[in-house]
Amino acid sequence: MDKFLNLLVAGTALGSIYALVALGFVVVFKSTGTINFAHGGFVLLGAYLTYNYSVTWDLPFIVAMLMAMATMAILAVILERLVLRKLVGQPAFTVIMVTLGLLILIQQVQQSIWSTEVLLDDPWGTDQWELGGVVITQVRFFTVLFAAIVVLGFFLFFRFSAWGVAMRAAAIDQEAALAQGISVARVFAISWAIAGVVAVVAGVMLGADSASVNSTLSFSALRAFPAMILGGLDSPLGAIVGGVVIGVTEVMTTGYIEPNAEWLGQGFHSVMPFVVMIAILVLKPTGLFGSRAVERV
């Protein structure tokens, strides 16, 4: 039972990271209708920028993270304005491929600026608490806490702020939203900025989870796809639930499936999310909370 609870804690922590990454994908998908592969690059850059501000420039960690968020938000808006805006109305294929191009560019820019893996110097401390056999490390505690804060802020913004309402309106019907005086262009910009901000938190947490910030973070971020698919591409709530479910599944795979099935190979847990994703897509392509596109063939 202790083993199960420990794995559950670890899985929830990992899952909240996936949830954060997936949230970034979903925000952009919901308002613009495209999967933004460049988001993997945002996660990567966010982590390195935080490192740059906090370790290289020696600023307090929270300040560094806020500055990284501001930088990423600006960068995301610029990219949207310069590149993605020109593709409004183009087929999904074109837009996806452009975001893949951006992903490659961002990755190589990161490699050129910081060519090595770096450490964030454990700003959250290395202590751990024990609650009746269940070990909770500070990293995991803060991961879940940060994720919860971001998610809560996100939902409050969407529910109550004027821009949140505008974004929901534009997501339902762009033309109707335009007719009501909502600037859809600004909605796009805001959703990209939000994605940039969320990516910083996700990147830092992903870096903490894998013990160092390195260039593979953007691919780790792509492992959040299963979470997004499970939840349904256009549902923020789905991204959170999907993230936690996938995180727990992955950790449970390490704990229970891998020791009993060696033929699956080393590190099977890292592909487990994709196996789950393919199963979901076959059984229920719209995910748990996704809206269904009506089509009869």
Partner: peptide
């Protein structure tokens, strides 16, 4: 569209896992 891109992406990750372990 979007979904197919994601599934085929998953295929690449699963493929590397198989290549590394078989």
């Amino acid at each position: 569209g979007n979904y197919l891109v994601v599934v085929t992406l998953g295929l690449v990750f699963i493929g590397i896992h198989i290549f590394e372990n078989w």
